[in-house]
Amino acid sequence: MSPMAFVYLAVVLFVIGAAAVLLRRNAIVAFMGVELMLNAANLALVAFSRIHGTIDGQVMAFFVMVVAAAEVVVGLAIIIAVFRARQTISLDEPAELKG
């Protein structure tokens, strides 16, 4: 079976993550959706690495992981700060950006 199959799998995972971001109101769940999207992209990168027979794709995936780790730290810190200020982490609540 061709490694290309993993790319299709990555597409499915990515779309599930995106739908989660759109549909879930809990900020942590939406954030997990984002993480899933990042991982789907990683999977595609690794699959491409396998397809092309070069290791650069894996290195790129590694970088994505590092950046994602940093992003998770900051993102969760923001969620905690928001929770402290408003006692909720619902994404529908802070609608103060309404124009």
Binding site: M4, S49, R50, I51, G53, T54, I55, D56, Q58, F62
Partner: peptide, 20 residues
């Protein structure tokens, strides 16, 4: 339509580390 490379890459830690 890619024809995947015949043999897989070596994703061993030392190979990745060399590149990194």
């Amino acid at each position: 339509a890619f024809e995947p490379a015949e043999e897989g890459v070596s994703g061993e830690p030392d190979a990745v580390a060399m590149l990194l």
